[in-house]
């Protein structure tokens, strides 16, 4: 079942094309990794998918009951957040914001959802800990739990392992794969760690101001593009 389809997407900043010719679709349960060098248009594509930047041409169509405001987004962390006085529970609960509708406060069901997602991420013990006191890996788990509160179908992760040590990175990748497989939640992950991307993802989208490749991870491994990008070596 297709949940997202992009056709002929083009994005511009002040009349200057930054990304063009993007065509891909995502089915339920897919794990799509978006790769490319810095400035290749990855962040622009994310903004487009989240509805924060309208495409100049082309269309983004959500189907299967998914809306652009129901994407579980994991943004890159800002300096403000790293020393923000908030408990883990408060941060995770804020992911339920898009389920509030017109009501002013979180219902019991939403609070329950926040607690369940903390258990899924193995951070229920940290519930009343201060977010700023956590390690980088723990902070990312908290933000992942918050993203899960916001979605039932699609996670969108922007460089989720930036700044993590190798062990924490590995745990994060495994956790994401686990969510993808066990809960059948589709994943779109932006990364420039291409080796890991090919290992975990089912599909790859390679950008370089335009779409250079879209297909399954297996096809990507065989492509000349991947060989060049990976420095000639086979994975």
């Amino acid at each position: 079942m297709t949940i997202l389809e992009c056709k002929d997407l083009c994005f511009s900043y002040e009349g200057k094309r930054v990304l063009e010719g993007v065509n891909f679709s995502l089915s339920a349960g897919d794990y799509l990794c978006v790769v490319g060098e810095n400035g290749s248009g990855k962040s622009t594509l994310i903004k487009g998918l989240l509805g924060l930047k309208p495409p100049e041409e082309g269309s983004i169509a959500f189907s299967g009951g998914l809306k652009s405001t129901e994407i579980g987004y994991l943004p890159q962390q800002t300096q403000v957040q790293r020393d923000f006085p908030a408990s883990v529970y408060e941060v995770v609960l804020s992911g339920c914001l898009n389920s509030l509708g017109t009501s002013l406060f979180y219902s019991r069901a939403l609070k329950q959802r926040a607690l369940e997602n903390m258990e899924r991420m193995g951070i229920e013990d940290l519930k009343s800990e201060s977010y700023q006191a956590l390690s980088g890996g723990q902070q990312q788990r908290v933000l992942l739990a918050r993203a899960l509160c916001a979605t039932k179908k699609l996670l969108l992760l922007d460089e989720p392992v930036t700044g993590l040590d190798p062990i924490a990175s590995g745990e994060m990748y495994n956790l994401i794969k686990l969510i993808n497989l066990c809960d059948n939640i589709s994943v779109i992950m932006v990364s420039h760690d291409i080796h890991e991307a090919v290992r975990y993802a089912t599909h790859i989208l390679h950008l370089g101001h335009r779409q250079l490749f879209f297909g399954t991870a297996a096809e990507y491994r065989e492509s000349s593009l991947a060989r060049r990008f990976l420095g000639g070596g086979r994975i």
Binding site: T69, E90, S94, G95, L97
Partner: peptide
């Protein structure tokens, strides 16, 4: 609840509508 979310993470809040 909304002011907390906007204070903590503006891009997440905006992305979720």
């Amino acid at each position: 609840p909304r002011l907390f979310a906007v204070t903590f993470d503006e891009s997440f809040s905006r992305a979720t509508g």
